[in-house]
Amino acid sequence: MASPSVESAAEAFAAIALAAVACDGELANLEIRALRQQLEFRTPYRHYSEKTMGDLLDRLLAILRGEGLSTLVTQAVSQLEGAQRETALAMAANLIHADHIQTPEELSFLSQLAEQLELGAERATQILEVISVLHRDSLAG
């Protein structure tokens, strides 16, 4: 039986989200909840049943566990184009900020993802900076 692979833009987008929360070697409950929230209001996921969403995440987890993070991301990137790539980077950054702790592994992941998505250094930096500003605790004393 062939290994599962990322076969559509919808799967790719979810794969990038999963990779973002898994890139530090942990899948914390807060991160999984944030992943689901990021996907559930978007098309096509908002139309997925709980079972369909669970099956999708199970397939992607199988790729992650069997082939590794790098393969999951490489397969996903090949399915995305244009604005999808920009949004995928922004969503990944948003998920990495979800727990308010950015590890060196997470920051390295974002840098590598930005390169793989081929958005251009300036555009990728803009996206990452905006997400960072969004998560800044500017009212903290």
Rank of each mutant, 00 (worst) to 15 (best):
A90I: 13
S3G: 09
N94M: 08
V133K: 10
A92M: 04
R33E: 15
M1H: 10
E11N: 02
L89A: 08
V133F: 08
T87Y: 07
H47N: 14
P44F: 05
V21N: 00
L57A: 04
Q116W: 06
G25T: 03
F13E: 04
D55A: 14
N94S: 13
L56V: 05
V77D: 05
Y48K: 14
A62E: 12
H47Y: 15
A114Y: 00
R85N: 04
G68D: 06
Q116H: 09
H100Y: 08
N94F: 06
G68P: 04
R59I: 13
L113M: 05
A22Q: 09
G141I: 13
L113Y: 01
Q116A: 14
L72K: 01
T125K: 10
H97G: 05
E67Y: 05
N29Y: 09
E118K: 11
E106W: 05
L134V: 11
D99K: 07
R46F: 12
T43W: 12
S49T: 15
L72C: 04
S138N: 12
I63E: 04
A121E: 11
T87A: 13
A124N: 06
A17N: 09
L128F: 01
E118I: 06
I32E: 00
E26Y: 12
Q75M: 09
E105M: 12
Q126H: 10
A98E: 04
Q38A: 15
L117A: 05
A114S: 14
A62P: 06
F41K: 14
M53K: 11
T125C: 08
A34Q: 01
A22D: 07
T52Y: 09
A15G: 02
A92K: 01
S108L: 15
S70K: 11
S3T: 11
M91S: 10
R59Q: 11
A121T: 08
Q126Y: 08
E129R: 13
G68I: 06
A22G: 08
L72W: 06
D55S: 13
Y45I: 03
A9P: 02
M1F: 12
E7I: 06
T125D: 10
A140Q: 15
A88N: 03
L35G: 01
A114W: 00
I101W: 09
L30F: 07
A28G: 10
L30R: 12
I127W: 00
A140L: 15
I131G: 00
I131K: 00
L134K: 12
G54I: 01
V77M: 02
L80M: 11
R85V: 00
L64K: 08
A98N: 07
G120Q: 05
L60F: 04
A34W: 00
P44G: 03
Q75S: 07
V73I: 12
H135R: 07
E122F: 03
L80Y: 03
E129A: 12
H47K: 14
A22E: 10
T103C: 08
A92P: 02
E50R: 09
A92I: 11
L35D: 00
A92R: 03
A20V: 07
R33C: 12
Q112D: 12
A19T: 02
E129M: 14
I16H: 00
R136N: 11
L134N: 10
L139N: 09
L72P: 08
E106T: 05
K51I: 13
E11R: 00
Y45E: 14
D24S: 06
R65P: 01
E122I: 03
S138Y: 14
V133H: 10
R42M: 15
V73W: 06
C23Y: 03
G141Q: 14
F109P: 04
S49P: 07
L18T: 04
